[in-house]
Write a protein that binds this DNA or RNA. Structure first.
Lengths: 217, 217
DNA sequence: GGCACACTACACCGTGCAGTGTAGTGCTGT
DNA sequence: ACAGCACTACACTGCACGGTGTAGTGTGCC
């Protein structure tokens, strides 16, 4: 009678406030103690909500977890696009290598402080890392892929413009990511400990190395 | 009465065969299903050993986990030193940049196929990633630190020799690691899926970029 | 034969937790 | 006044798992 078409089991829409409260609470606890280390009671308590409500909203623990990932993913890709637009847009008047380095540095620092520094996004990384082998290919890959693609497009653009010297923009973009975000994240995976100055320095150095490797001479 | 000096609780030495069997079984299962997703019964079964024996050998689940880390750490650092010795030793007659690139590439591929390709070491990475926030600073950091230090020493050496251009060998070493191992690992974190050719290509490209960024011109 | 030891097989305890069912409360619109 | 809804509080089930205790078996050593 319920016409339960997909896996959905008559979840409730509910108020946005409670929904985000639950997501925030769960994210925080999951990141700190691991998904398995957190009881649904704890999540409910932290969200100041009845456990029953958590289940009414999200169905079960797994789907709550996935909702967190989806949430973080969404705002993360948005952040990347925004930073990309803000610092590396076509209209930014980047015509020389020094200008490019400056813009890339600003971009990297922006992204770095946003992503590595603030918990929401770092949480996604951490959670995916925790669950990687247990969860068959979460949509994290989708996110990083989408983000990288956007970056690849910019790299290709600057290669066309004669500022970067590469026949393989995806590779160059990957190297850019490795020298900046990846390295920064690897240095301080604990969101709580994230030191903005250190992230900043990592970004500056990473971009510099990238420019030395890839700038037209 | 037991004179339990430290945390030790009268563990048993046991045979090396059983010990390694248990470690191997636990490592495999932990990596695949996560530490919390694996019961001690499962470990015992997989190791073809009584559960009681597992407890007699390792005390409890936590210490079994730490034993796995220690084990992997040990052989990992050994691998790094060996590869370093094999490809980048003083006596290797590296006097030109092309020679250096070649040696670095060989080194990276060697390390890459050993570490990323083969499960033992990748397991450590994966497990630490899983447990990072739940376990207060495991000795993974010790390993990567020790490994990086050895690499730093070599980089400094080649900088002195006039082949590399950097005033900051630790940074250069970090960038080397980011462009090679880190990137390779990030591309395919699942040991089972590890594609040697892909790892190989990542290493070649990474070293090439590193050389472009850091070789003396 | 008899002791010591490594090990197994198995039963067992306690507990924490995912998930459910339900009674009850307050709010809103009619 | 009443129905409908969102939500809470709470009790409760079932189960999986960490860890322990122990009786019994095989082996080597004296």
């Amino acid at each position: 009678m319920k016409s339960a078409v997909s896996t959905e089991k008559t979840l409730r829409e509910g108020s946005l406030a409670k929904r985000t409260a639950i997501l925030a609470a769960a994210r925080e606890l999951f990141v700190r103690h691991g998904v398995d280390g957190v009881s649904m009671d704890a999540v409910a308590a932290r969200a100041a909500v009845s456990k029953r409500t958590v289940y009414d909203y999200f169905g079960d623990k797994r789907r709550l977890f996935l909702a967190i990932l989806a949430d973080a993913s969404e705002s993360m890709i948005a952040s990347v696009r925004r930073a990309l637009d803000e610092h590396l847009a076509d209209g930014a008047g980047i015509t020389t290598v020094p200008q490019l380095e400056k813009a890339l540095t600003a971009f990297a620092i922006d992204l770095g402080t946003t992503i590595v520094g603030s918990a929401d996004y770092a949480a996604a990384f951490a959670l995916v890392a925790q669950q990687r082998m247990q969860t068959p290919a979460t949509e994290d890959d989708v996110v990083t892929t989408a983000a990288e693609e956007a970056l690849v497009e910019r790299v290709a653009h600057f290669a066309d413009a004669g500022l970067l010297d590469t026949e393989n923009p995806p590779l160059a973009a990957a190297h850019f990511g490795a020298l900046t975000i990846l390295l920064a994240y690897n240095d301080q995976p604990d969101p709580a400990t994230a030191d903005p100055d250190r992230v900043r320095q990592t970004m500056i150095d990473g971009v510099h190395a990238f420019i030395r490797a890839y700038a037209t001479r």
